[in-house]
Design a binder for these strands. Structure first.
Ligand code: MN
Ligand code: MN
Ligand code: ZN
Ligand code: ZN
Lengths: 141, 141
DNA sequence: GAAGTTTTTAGACTATATCTAATCTGAGAT
DNA sequence: ATCTCAGATTAGATATAGTCTAAAAACTTC
């Protein structure tokens, strides 16, 4: 995604394309690695213009509300964010904590009736275990 | 699960059955509601013996390591815990944040090859949307 | 370019979790 | 029964994550 597209995305969602907001969105589209707010704050502050911590949090909140960014549900201390792109599932490594993308495939919904009156908007599938690196290391260790 | 069973579970996992640790485990087995550490701390301190905050966190960590308790992956501030019982999936309400259990059913694994060298230990399926209460309220509102 | 709105900012504040070092407890050894 | 000592608990300090405030800056509209 290039700069013009990011600008269009933001303005199409009713958000001004400020340099700070653009920087957050650009970082998330360039680096698909489920970054924490702290990592994003640090990354956007390595380039001008700088962004305060509050603004980084504010912009992440705005981008999530606008549906351009998703907060990934993982246990642990800091929330993690990713730009919404193609649908996919997640793999979380027990050992190193890395969150990796898995190719999307359809997941069966719960059997009729067991949902009751609930209204489903989306589903998220998370696998846990050892990532490639950690699996190899523990096999050879 | 009664007191004797909890004691057996703890000792079978190499954990002493201290009053504080027992109280955490008993609360989680009695109340299946994905409690935060703060809620657990408060609950075990409504009955004797009392437990410090550090001990509540220590015991939750020990119980998770021993495989008797699971930290549920949800976005938001505080980690949530549940006693490991029968397998199930989760439903998280967009509006009120409640985490509810859904009946278990098998989820297809990723297609061969797309996992690479990763080793899968478990999978978790999370649905999001409106819970029964919030769905009714928003329909009639 | 004046007026009004949104955004940014530094730093205070709140919430959540971990660490530290002293003390206590209890199960096995004697 | 008493000793012993690893394991457990404690209060409080510290660390980390996130939110709030009030003032200034940036932008939009007139
Ligand atoms: Mn992802
Ligand atoms: Mn559950
Ligand atoms: Zn790993
Ligand atoms: Zn609800």
């Amino acid at each position: 995604m290039d700069a013009a597209e990011i600008r269009q995305f933001l303005e199409g969602s009713g958000l001004r394309c400020t340099p700070q907001r653009f920087a957050v969105m650009a970082f998330l589209t360039e680096h698909n690695r489920h970054a924490t707010a702290a990592e994003i704050f640090e990354a956007v502050n390595r380039v001008d213009p700088r962004s305060s911590r509050a603004t980084t949090y504010n912009n992440l909140r705005d981008l999530v509300q606008a549906g351009l960014v998703r907060e990934v549900a993982v246990e642990g201390r800091g929330a993690r964010f990713e730009a919404i792109g193609v649908p996919h599932h997640h793999f979380v490594c027990d050992h190193c904590g890395n969150v990796e993308d898995l190719e999307w495939y359809d997941v069966p919904k719960p059997a009729g009736g067991s949902l009751g009156k609930r209204v489903v908007r989306e589903c998220e599938l998370i696998f846990r275990g050892l990532c490639s690196n950690c699996a190899q290391r523990s096999a050879s260790g």
